[in-house]
């Protein structure tokens, strides 16, 4: 079985004070720490588990700047057999549909039985590329997958709906699944393991290799574009309590009491 996992390198944003660039179109990136998109780490783990359980060849793929090869190294360290890095300055500003076309070209006539992507990314969060890719490849898909059960080449796919409800689908391969967090517990990958794969080849592909022209990608090939970024409008905003530990605790207790929480 051949499995493809699509990975994205994204900036970490929790406990980070994000700033917007002067042209208003991007966030300031120089101080940011990047890592593998959280949803993709679950997709990658799922692929490696399938490989361990039932023999598969796993290919990891990313589209991005030179530094994006970090996520491919991580994939290789976790057990992927091959890595493809699509890299071209012209790709900057591509919308999700263009990215899906780019990946479709990179897949070419390789027949993957299973393609896994994250259900969405933690940066722009379109939630589009995976399903766009499935449609471009003419492959059945399921999104927000929280469990996969195998019966030979048939799979039972559990999708997360709202309010604690799930939906169970019977699917055959080939298929593309977009993976929801919590499907598994991604393993820890040590720096030593990542160092061990530093000499493994990463296939680099540019636009020419994919048979795409500059006009078909980037902002010019896209059908949607980000016009401007801003800080979100302030909501009702919490009244911020300040003070030392004990003092804060007293304030909190008073609030809890007055709001009918305790002892009344």
């Amino acid at each position: 079985m051949k499995i493809l996992v699509c990975l994205k390198r994204v900036p970490e944003t929790t406990e980070v004070d994000l700033q917007i660039t002067s042209d208003g179109k991007d966030i300031k990136r120089d101080q940011l720490v990047y890592s593998l998109n959280e949803w993709d780490s679950y997709a990658l783990e799922e692929a490696v588990r399938i490989k361990e359980a039932r023999e598969a060849q796993v290919t990891v793929l990313t589209v991005g700047e030179p530094d994006a090869q970090d996520v491919l190294r991580r994939g290789l360290a976790m057990g992927a057999d091959e890595a493809i890095h699509i890299q071209d300055p012209q790709l900057l500003g591509s919308d999700p549909w263009v990215l899906a076309k780019v990946i479709q070209r990179a897949v070419g006539d390789q027949r993957f039985d299973l393609i896994l992507t994250g259900a969405r990314s933690g940066d722009e969060g379109w939630g589009q590329v995976g399903v766009n890719l499935a449609e471009l490849l003419g492959m059945p898909h399921a999104t927000l997958v929280t469990r996969v059960e195998w019966d030979q080449d048939r799979i039972k796919v559990f999708r997360e709906l709202e309010g604690g409800l799930e939906e169970v689908l019977a699917m055959t391969l080939p298929a593309l699944l977009t993976i929801q967090t919590g499907i598994n517990e991604p393993r820890y990958v040590s720096i030593t393991r990542i160092r061990k794969v530093r000499n493994m080849e990463i296939q680099l592909k540019g636009l020419a290799d994919l048979g795409l022209s500059a006009g078909e990608v980037g902002a010019s090939g896209s059908r949607i574009q980000v016009e401007s970024l801003s800080l979100p409008p302030l909501g009702k905003q919490a009244r911020i309590l300040t003070g030392k530990g004990e003092e804060l605790a007293s304030q909190l207790i008073e609030i809890i009491k007055s709001k009918g929480g305790i002892g009344i």
């Binding site: 966030i27 933690g122 980000v226 016009e227 970024l229 801003s230 800080l231 979100p232 409008p233």
Partner: peptide
């Protein structure tokens, strides 16, 4: 970005 940025 986790609700930290608004975009048009």
């Amino acid at each position: 970005y986790n609700g930290k940025i608004q975009s048009v």
